[in-house]
Design a protein around this nucleic acid. Structure first.
Lengths: 231, 231
DNA sequence: CCTACCGATCGGTAGG
DNA sequence: CCTACCGATCGGTAGG
């Protein structure tokens, strides 16, 4: 029952916001009376925090697993992006809820980010710097700032995919938008070799390090697949 | 007086949201009684729309001027990004308000974006395609999707600069984050030549077309200057 | 632009 | 988990 409440509260908070969602409405969605909610959660604010905890605790599992699994440093990008895209496209409410919390409770989120996300950023930033030394990652890239930009890009980009679709084409295609999202993150990260004609590509860059995406057929880079692997 | 109300309402809606801001609080900030607000605006919702109108109407002036001014196609990027960054860093409340409206009133915003933004996206997308034919803009870039991604990136990135700063460094530096924001947009747009050693750079790309940023000193590309040129 | 006021709705409690 | 209920606050109106 507690799980049901969290589920409906997540959906409604994401769609209408905390202030825009009365307990009454959550109770109706769950199928109980309002005071029953306050038996499981001492207050509406406690419910909000429980919803947020449930959302962020999933990342606490996913992040370490990702960093362990990626043996080679250059596979981290694909793994992390695929996981993030999959997580948020499976239920865009997750992304919307995060954005709302960032706006509505900046101080509380600042503490959460600092303790739960900052350590991982430092770890991944070290990988990026190693990539820079190897000439695989763009030298002018600012590791920590890049990671924050991309995290923000993925979360807000997916949160508003449905809405912003009308700007891209008459018949919105979420996959197309997510694909471009991932491409932007990718091309801003790796040193690219696309325009180099022929053998110049071999100059100074270890051929195995950058991995496949650069020279291959464009527009099939994980967004599509990840969007399908669902929840 | 109407202007004063719009000003305070913008600030409070941006910080606390529409549902989180009572008319009473706006009245206090302006220095009048609550019913006086409803003399200038027929309802709270009418006030919200007036605030949004005031914000978006500024872009209706800025966008055309930008596209007129940029004589060369390759200057459009710098001009647009500088203008957008300047506009939103001058008052991050503008960015936050836009993000809130996107979440709280998606249908209404969909109509606004479709009529007020879509035409411009089509125009700029044509410039991008021309750049692709010239080999200056990345071939795998999806013009319309790219523009939406970057617009979203700038708005949300600046909306949360202050908050996300703690993830980048112990002593947050807004300029550093904005700089990386602009770099990501830039490097995901243009074909880069950085790793090409020596004369290979001349192969197939008109030297004057790409303009300066690519080969020069990194990390001084408009974010810093724009952030200073204020409101 | 004000005072006075209203009906509706809110989060939360009493008591079982 | 329910019924019954409360004080506070909300957007908005009457009337001047």
């Amino acid at each position: 029952m507690r799980a049901r409440v969290l589920e409906e509260a997540t959906r409604l908070f994401a769609a209408q916001g905390y202030d825009g969602t009365p307990l009454q409405q959550i109770a109706e969605a769950v199928g109980v009376r309002k005071p029953s909610l306050l038996y499981h959660f001492p207050s509406k604010d406690a419910l909000r925090q429980a919803v947020l905890d449930a959302l962020l605790s999933r990342w606490a599992d996913v992040l370490p697993r990702l960093l362990m699994a990626a043996g080679q440093g250059d596979q981290i990008f694909e793994g992390m992006v695929r996981e993030a895209v999959g997580f948020f496209t499976a239920d865009p409410n997750r992304a919307r809820l995060l954005v709302r919390e960032l706006l509505d409770h900046p101080q509380e989120m600042k503490v959460r980010l600092l303790t739960q996300l900052r350590p991982w950023i430092e770890v991944i930033a070290r990988y990026l710097r190693r990539g820079q030394e190897m000439g695989v990652v763009r030298a002018e890239l600012d590791p920590e700032a890049y990671l924050v930009v991309v995290a923000n890009l993925l979360v807000t980009g997916i949160a508003s995919t449905e809405l912003l679709g009308v700007l891209v084409a008459s018949e919105p295609d979420p996959e197309r938008q997510v694909r471009e999202l991932v491409r932007v993150a990718h091309d801003a990260l790796f040193v690219s070799k696309e325009i180099v004609p022929g053998r110049a590509a071999r100059a100074g860059v270890p051929p195995t390090a950058v991995a496949k995406p650069a020279g291959r057929a464009p527009a099939r880079r994980g967004g599509a697949r990840a969007a399908r692997h669902g929840r």
